[in-house]
Design a binder for these strands. Structure first.
Lengths: 229, 229
DNA sequence: ATTACTACTAAACGAGTAC
DNA sequence: TGTACTCGTTTAGTAGTAA
């Protein structure tokens, strides 16, 4: 987790970049930086000292004015922020939504479907994990959660193709990467079948979610669903 | 000038956006936000109150959890930050550089050239101001300033086309928008002629820079040159 | 000119707690 | 559960000034 401090530094970094310290060395005095930031010279000085200690900038201090260059590592921090914003601004929906539901025991069909090799193989390929043979079922109760669940349908999803065997056919499954209970990386899977409506979440993970999170029926669970795939 | 406080809020805003409050309403408790930000619930609560006072978010508080939506004005603040970063990351040079030089009296040829209607008309069109008939000449002294001045040549510039009259021909002039003495919007003009080398800056502005900034020979002046046109 | 230390002030933070 | 108040503590910010 980026702490608040870091963010402060990023702001100073951005200003330094704007002032010419980006991809080159710029002559920037603490006084000049202070004016641009609307802070005191002393605070600007302290910021530069701290940025230097973090290894984010390189300085060459002289009475004639210090030469400052932003280091690669700091450049990458700015890029990360940029990537985060780019995702946000250029798409017209948030990168994640969080839903909350209560655990209930399903019909056990989830396990049946997941166990089909064609599905589990594709899940391994597309989500990067071997699914535990079973799903965690959550019932959404609030209007907010149900509405949000419906919003998801229009966002892009990872698609696991259906198939047919001699007995019957298996349909397309949409998956959204998710973090379950704030801890376990897994996925929300939908349209496995039509037994449940949009007030139900079916979750898969590489582990047994009930065990891993110590869940029993009626426990509440938060699921953070990624809309960026 | 954006003050430091704003920046703090932008960080919270970005997190709220990531959490689903972007272009839609998200249910986010102060406790949940606090965890995501790595701060206390109390501080998260205060942030939300302040963001609401600023008009950056709209809240619908209920014991079941508050609904939060980012307002358009805050969205625009994020876009502004994004645009700033985009410029930085996608170009490989800084958006501005600052040079410092000392005032000296030129040969008065600047005035002659600027007074040519073909030039001044183009300057009006491309820079958006009617140039005062005269240039402010600055002599660069430090190695840093001379080197930086030379760096400018490879950055894109506004080009004012040359022309011919019955007496002689006038060459292409490159212009860089600039803020002179931290106050006056004008431009750096180059290649008006070859009398001066890369250790000299010639500046134009809608006003007489000497008068406006109270300058005399040997006074030092800072010039912030925009490399983004 | 600069930078940055010390000593102080102002602001932000968070624990406890009420609602 | 939630949110947000008070209030003591911690941290950030500045003035004065030395180097």
């Amino acid at each position: 987790m980026t702490d608040k401090q870091e963010w402060q530094y990023l702001y100073v970094l951005l200003k330094l970049a704007d002032m010419g310290a980006y991809k080159r060395t710029a002559k920037i005095s603490t006084e000049y930086l202070a004016t641009k930031l609307g802070i005191s010279q002393q605070t600007a000085s302290r910021y530069l000292i701290e940025l230097e200690h973090k290894g984010w900038i390189k300085r060459d201090i002289s009475p004639a004015g210090s030469l400052i260059k932003i280091e690669d590592i700091a450049f990458r921090a700015l890029q990360k922020l940029y990537a985060n914003l780019k995702l946000l601004i250029e798409k017209s929906y948030p990168p994640s939504v969080t839903l909350e539901g209560t655990v209930f025991t399903g019909l056990g069909e989830g396990a049946y479907y997941i166990s089909k090799e064609s599905y589990s193989k594709q899940i391994m390929e597309k989500l990067g994990f071997e699914p535990f043979p079973g799903t965690l079922n959550l019932k959404l109760t609030s209007d907010y959660d149900i509405k949000t669940r419906m919003d998801l349908d229009v966002y892009p999803a990872l698609e696991v193709m259906g198939f047919q065997n001699k007995d019957r056919s298996f349909g397309l499954v949409k998956c959204y990467p998710a973090i379950i209970g704030g801890k376990v990386k897994g996925a929300l899977v939908t349209a496995l079948r039509s037994h449940y409506d949009s007030s139900v979440l079916e979750l898969i993970a590489p582990v047994c979610l009930r065990k891993k999170l110590g869940l029993k029926d009626n426990h509440k669970v938060k699921v953070e669903i990624s809309t960026v795939i």
